[in-house]
Structures are given as C-alpha cells and as structure tokens.
C-alpha cells in the first residue's frame, strides 16, 4: 500500500462514518448498501481485468453461488451464517479453479467466453433446481448476520458492516498490487513473454488472481443474501455480469480506485435516473426504468470513446489541468 492509497482509505473511512448521520432515510442507506456489494465484487474484478489483463463475463455467477450457498445452508441445514459464508468461499474457490485452470492455460481471451457460458449455466441451475434453490420463487427467510451476538438488524448497522468489508477488500487489494505477486501480475499484463523470461509463472498467477476475484464476488453474494433475506434468480442473470464489467470499465480498470468509483456511480445511477424521470415528465418525455440499459450502454460508449482510462483517471486529469490553469 502506498501513501496516496493509505490517505484515500482514511478519507473514505471518515466519509463513510459520517454518511448515516447525514442520510437519515433508510431507503437511501439501502441503496448505498447495495452499492457496497457491487463495490466489493468490482474490486476483485479490477484485480483480474486491470492488473492481470483477463476479462470475466461471469462474475455475477460467483455472486450467485455465494448468495445461494449462504441461503441454502442457513435455511435448509440450519448452519450459522458465518459458517455458510465460509463454505461458499470454499465452494467458489473450487468452482473458479475448475473454470479457470483449463481456460487460463491458453493464451488470449478464452476466459471471457468460458465465463459467459458459465454465467448462463449457473443462472439456469438456479431457476431449474427447484428442490434446492426454490426455483423462480426463490428462497425465503434467510437469517440476518450478527457479530458476537450483536445483530446487524438495522440498515445503519448493516451499512457500517458492509462498507467495513469493502474497506478490508480495498486494503487487501492495495497490499497485493504493491507486492511481489502484484508486480508479477502487472508485469504479465505488460508483456507475458518478458514476465515469463524473468521467472514469473504466468499461468499460476492468472489462476490465483481469478480465484481471488471470485472469492470477492462470493463474499459480496453472501452479504447480499443476509441483507435482503430473500433470493431469487432474477438479479443473477448474465446481464448482471456484464453490468459488473461495465462498472469496472467506466470507473477505470487500471486502478482500484477507478473500479471503486465506477461501482458506486453505476449503483447510484438508477436512483439518479428516477429523480430525472420527474423532470423529464415536465418536458413531455415519459422515461421508464426499462430504458436504464440504454443509458448504461450510452455511458459505456462515451467513456470508451473519450475517457478510455475511465472516469477516475479523467477526474484526475481534470484536477491537474485545473491546477495548471490556476498557476498561470
């Protein structure tokens, strides 16, 4: 972890501590809790995309496995939520290894294709295995989490908990990218041949970081299940995986803070759009939530054309340009 990242993390913690005091409304707190889940998944995905140079179009499936494993083990087998979360992590580690080992041994973007298929398979399984997952009607009565007997039963408590996990996720990611392993990952993104010629086992590193990013997604899924207490296959379609990749790309995949920014912005976007709906109605445009996907697409297109390094980098450049103008 470098000085700038440490400073960023401290500012983030202070900011987060203040949020529930500023936003009293449980609905908006809930929106921010969902943003935390996406953030966690996107930090892991950023390690894979930005640092190891691989794309996964199936991270929604790992979120689903985390959520369903937690849901099934706690409701039908009566496990404790924490044990179920741990079991989900182990399961996802195994599944990610099965998906990743054959595809990451090949050069090129085979992982993207394999994970896309994998995402559809998991979604179909969630719908079809009615005895296990409840099928389309879902799983009910998933218990809440509690920490040492202290139940996380209010939105404010869950807000602090979920964002604390995001902060830990950021801390782990920053440590990793500034370490020997992280340098190996960034190196193989720069040139696989050069990295291999220096003794970096590029295949092993790609597999490890893929598994690690899947674990981020799994934890995010478990936390989701314990927050909403009800899961169905709806939110875990292939489009969710695509949305996660969009978040990372919009924010900027070459920096952890970029993925973080992208995840927060796009998680809040539906809310912003529903605000805008009222104003649009005044000028005679009937905006429907169905159009959200169009807006996402447009945003991605504009970002890729004008800010290929993402919003976060674009902001940084704007600040630097502003400073220069003031100096003159």
């Amino acid at each position: 972890m470098q000085g700038k990242d440490t400073a960023g993390l401290i500012v983030l913690i202070l900011g987060l501590a203040a949020v529930p005091w500023v936003i009293g409304n449980d609905y908006y707190l809930g929106v921010l809790i969902f943003a935390a889940f996406n953030c966690l998944t996107c930090i892991g995905l950023c390690l894979l995309m930005g640092y190891a140079g691989q794309i996964s179009l199936g991270h929604g499936a790992f979120v689903a496995i985390g959520a369903y494993t937690s849901g099934i083990l706690t409701t039908t087998l009566g496990w404790s939520p924490w044990a179920a979360m741990g079991a989900a992590v182990l399961l996802v580690t195994g599944v990610a290894a099965i998906v990743g080992i054959p595809t990451l041994r090949l050069k090129g973007h085979y992982l993207a294709m394999a994970t896309l298929g994998f995402a559809s398979i998991i979604h179909i399984l969630a719908v079809a295995t009615v005895d296990l997952t409840g099928g389309p009607s879902g799983l009910l009565d998933i218990p809440r989490l509690s920490i040492f007997g202290y139940p996380l039963d209010s939105d404010r408590r869950y807000f602090y908990f979920s964002w604390a996990v995001v902060v830990v996720g950021l801390y782990v990611a920053f440590n990793l990218i500034n370490s020997r392993v992280g340098r190996g990952l960034r190196a193989l993104h720069g040139s696989e041949d050069a990295a291999a010629s220096l003794g970096v086992n590029i295949t092993a590193y790609k597999i490890q970081v893929f598994i690690m990013s899947a674990v981020y997604a799994s934890v995010s899924g478990s936390m989701y299940a314990y927050y909403v207490n009800y899961i169905d296959p709806g939110p875990f379609g292939v489009m969710h995986s695509v949305l996660l990749v969009t978040m990372v790309a919009v924010g900027g995949m070459y920096r952890i803070w970029g993925a973080f920014t992208g995840a927060v912005l796009l998680s809040l976007l539906p809310e912003m759009l529903s605000f805008a709906t009222d104003y649009l109605q005044v000028i005679g445009i009937a905006y429907k939530p169905d159009y959200d996907i169009l807006v996402y697409g447009t945003i991605l297109l504009i970002i890729m054309l004008f800010l290929p390094e993402g919003v976060f980098d674009g902001l940084g450049r704007a600040v630097r340009a502003g400073k220069q103008m003031i100096r003159r």
Binding site: A173, S179, R180, V181, G184, A187, G190, L198, V200
Partner: peptide
C-alpha cells in the same frame, strides 16, 4: 513493462530471488 516505473521493472527481475505468495502479500 511500459506502465511500470524503471525501478519496478527491475524489481520484477528479483521475482525468483524472493518468496512472498498471494496470501502473505495481500
């Protein structure tokens, strides 16, 4: 590794002479 600093490039060269794995590094 064009995006990395000059020093970091050489640090990758020390890969085989160091040992930290993914858990310890994180």
């Amino acid at each position: 590794f064009p995006q990395m600093t000059v020093l970091e490039n050489v640090m990758v060269g020390r890969h085989l002479r160091s040992a930290a794995g993914i858990f310890f590094s994180s």
